[in-house]
Computed example of a mutant assay.
Amino acid sequence: MDPLYPLNASDDFNATNGTNGTNGTNVSGNSSDGFNQFVQPAWQITLWAVAYCSIVAVSVVGNMVVIWIILAHKRMRTVTNYFLVNLAFAEAAMSAFNTVINFTYAVHNEWYFGLVYCRFHNFFPIAAIFASIYSMTAIALDRYMAIIHPLQPRLTSTETRVVIAVVWMLALLLAFPQYYFSSTALLPGRTVCYINWPEYTTVNFKKIYYVCVTLLIYFLPLGIMGCAYTIVGVTLWASEIPGDSSERFKEQLIAKRKVVKMMIVVVCTFAVCWLPYHVYFLLHQFFPELFEQRFIQQVYLAVMWLAMSSTMYNPIIYYCLNSR
């Protein structure tokens, strides 16, 4: 299973007859002419394996370094940095627990890891992505309050921890349906991990859920951050630093600009990496016939790689744009 949605348009099927509930094809991946669309040459699998393992190595090491730097140095424990720790933890965990497993299932179309991990594998990434993007949203709102309303009281460290806890509670709640409806099925020659969505005559629960997830973990928070950073950017860069300003004022303004610039790059990187992924699965929900082509697995692997690669860029961005 991929982090958010079902593998290769085969997320829910009738386990009694082994057919895909979306398009009626055999979930073993064999089409009517006997061609197995999931088989790839060894060299192709090797290249994809190197690409995916590179994500895990860079993401886990980079984000753990970020967490250590902030938690081990007292002067680094600011509100913004607490949210950066939460962001780094979510990205490192998703990379470590899901990326390689995801790749293995995508390549083989066979689930080797049991029911418990099947449920975790479908459940955790949505929670992690939710926690990631709403950590970024919290940083954007904190920057907005600090710059646009500097006289208003700021979040304390205790309040920041409460916000982080609430974010994770909402994340787990949003992801719970993926856990609850996850299951495994033994088909001739292989085991699959899938989501057995309930079927209603009047409501397509699966489509409604995926559309809501996309809105809640992509478009809504990006819209909030876009508005916040636009206002902050106009405020910070609209006018030059007055020549008669004190040296301390100039340093503070430059520092604020650097932090905002860094976070804008982080948000834009996230948006670019995840946009193809969300478009891919929204198209699948409404135009499943587009996903019956033999090349779709390569498209899926490329889209998934780009989405998962978002977990490794932030430590690099921090290093390049923030000397602290």
Rank of each mutant, 00 (worst) to 15 (best):
M1Y: 08
P3N: 10
L7A: 11
N30W: 12
S32V: 05
D33E: 08
D33I: 00
G34L: 04
A42W: 12
C53R: 10
C53M: 07
M64T: 13
V65H: 05
V79T: 15
N81E: 03
F83R: 03
L87N: 13
I101T: 12
V107P: 03
W111K: 07
I133G: 11
Y134E: 06
A140I: 01
A140G: 10
D142F: 05
Y144F: 15
M145P: 03
H149Y: 15
T156K: 10
L172D: 00
A175E: 10
F176I: 01
Y180W: 14
A185Q: 05
L186D: 14
I195T: 15
P198D: 10
T201L: 05
N204I: 01
K206L: 01
C212Q: 08
F219C: 11
M225S: 09
M225V: 00
A228G: 12
G233T: 06
E240K: 04
P242V: 01
G243N: 14
D244Y: 07
V259Q: 12
M263T: 04
I264G: 00
I264K: 10
V266D: 14
V272I: 11
L282S: 11
H284S: 14
F287V: 04
Q297I: 02
L301G: 01
L301Q: 10
L306F: 14
M308E: 15
I317P: 09
